[in-house]
Design a protein around this nucleic acid. Structure first.
Lengths: 265, 265
DNA sequence: AATATATTTCCGCATAGCGGAATAAGTTGT
DNA sequence: ACAACTTATTCCGCTATGCGGAAATATATT
């Protein structure tokens, strides 16, 4: 293939001539829904994105015309519409790793009785791409597409452990700015996890995301340069003890990743 | 609420001053993946969208920087990245009807042994928003987020039957332009379905989407003006005969929609 | 009625984004 | 090794495009 790597962004002054601002803003409008599942009015968008009212009005008008937002005239609020979901589906369909991983994930879920999940990064969160539940029906139900924090979960930390030094410090920087005064505690948890990764090959979160929830995670680093993902296995501390993770489940999760690495790019 | 309905698009000349073209183009790039789950290069985008190479280069650069596209340097191809999936999830989370409908759908799926699904429109296709499978494991597996044709499926026709006259003729116009010479046959199927809807309250597709697959569908028209959806129940003709639909399943699907209408906006 | 709130429209201006052509990097063929 | 292709990016001048402040409009509220 004829690849020509992009140079430094061709800036003029301090603005990147190649970045299409209007597109970024429109997508920011769609993302404004992330916090809750509620319908939003133009005012809400303006508040959440910091864009001017008139700009928002034009962007929502555009997104509505394209079918990505549905408009409820009664309340003057917008909601996300089916085309958005359709994009997400194409995302999953385009991930060969996912299909390959499923049976291995299910196997471990059956063995452990705990859900096993695969996730990738979205800003400062991890998004669930696939999730297999064990036979035990009473498990925390995180759906595909849901997102959990990067900094305090085992899967987020495993992701951080799996990426390049440069990328990692960029992201840690962002987390720091985002978290403010709670950063020191968070930083400590992250570095403990890195240490655990260096020593054992997995990251832990023992009651740090939610009390009484333990979790192990291992990064998956595709050899072809596509984005790093991470697998986890987690559940109620009463079932999934730290000890069990360290003597059994952790190693099995590492095996899972090794197996997938062998058959996947 | 202070609602001010939008007037006629404020055109100047023949271009809509309020439509943000760059946003539409960027989203069109994301949609280019719809056909297959494959990774695409800039050339592919240019071919599929009809945009100039330089424009594509800037748009993909932007989408990549925002995290919506991942780039594989080995092959110089882009793929959809997790943030896109995350949007889709928010879409589902923002649909109250969906949660309400689930148990009713599952009940009918159990009774009939056939999958029951809920879908909304995306251009000329219907996108699955929820799908309940019956106990019978050998059913056609259409996943949430997948899309099927509007014109030849029961659920697509039910949707058409449920929307306003104006909207319907716009869409039929589009289908006609899209289909070319096969339009007359398609049109006939659609009008048969409308007749069936007027007479019995449901639409049918008897072997028209795929041979040996029958399906019934009923539109769901939210009273609050939010977008029309449609429910279906379908499967192998050997199990789901036309007769069974007409004497039993059709009526049950209608009941399902009636029940949901009673408890949902 | 009058006030408050929310959204859209208007419109001039600056510039963001566009596309054609040139350039660069790989890839393949001989 | 060199040349011919392929594919993608950069450059750059121009203009349409998108921007934001302010005015206008519509509804809700008191």
């Amino acid at each position: 293939m004829a690849v020509r790597p992009r140079k430094e962004p061709s800036k003029v002054g301090d603005t990147d001539r190649d970045f299409v601002v209007a597109l970024g803003r429109g997508l920011e409008v769609l993302r404004a829904f992330r916090k809750e599942g509620e319908a939003l009015g133009n005012g809400d968008f303006a508040a959440r994105t910091g864009l001017s009212k008139s700009t928002i009005s034009r962007l929502t008008y555009t997104l509505h015309r394209l079918g990505y937002l549905s408009f409820n005239p009664e309340t003057a609020r917008y909601s996300l519409a089916p085309p958005v979901l359709s994009l997400g589906y194409s995302c999953l369909a385009g991930m060969p790793t996912l299909q390959l991983a499923k049976p291995y994930m299910q196997e471990l879920a059956n063995y452990s009785g705990m859900p096993v999940a695969l996730a990738g990064r979205d800003r400062l969160t991890m998004v669930y791409l696939e999730r297999c539940r064990g036979p035990n029906p009473v498990t925390l139900a995180i759906e595909v597409g849901a997102h959990i924090k990067l900094a305090t979960t085992a899967i987020g930390r495993a992701y951080l452990a799996g990426i390049s030094e440069d990328r990692r410090s960029e992201i840690l920087q962002e987390i720091q700015e985002h978290e403010g005064q709670s950063w020191p505690a968070i930083e400590r948890g992250i570095y403990d996890a890195f240490e655990s990764y260096a020593k054992h090959g997995y990251c832990l979160s023992i009651g740090e995301w939610k009390t009484d929830v333990n979790s192990v995670a291992v990064p998956f680093i595709p050899s072809d340069g596509s984005p790093v993902l991470a697998f986890n296995c987690g559940g109620a501390a009463s079932h999934l003890s730290r000890d069990w993770i360290e003597t059994d489940i952790g190693a099995r999760l590492k095996d899972l990743v090794r197996n997938i690495s062998a058959i996947s790019p």
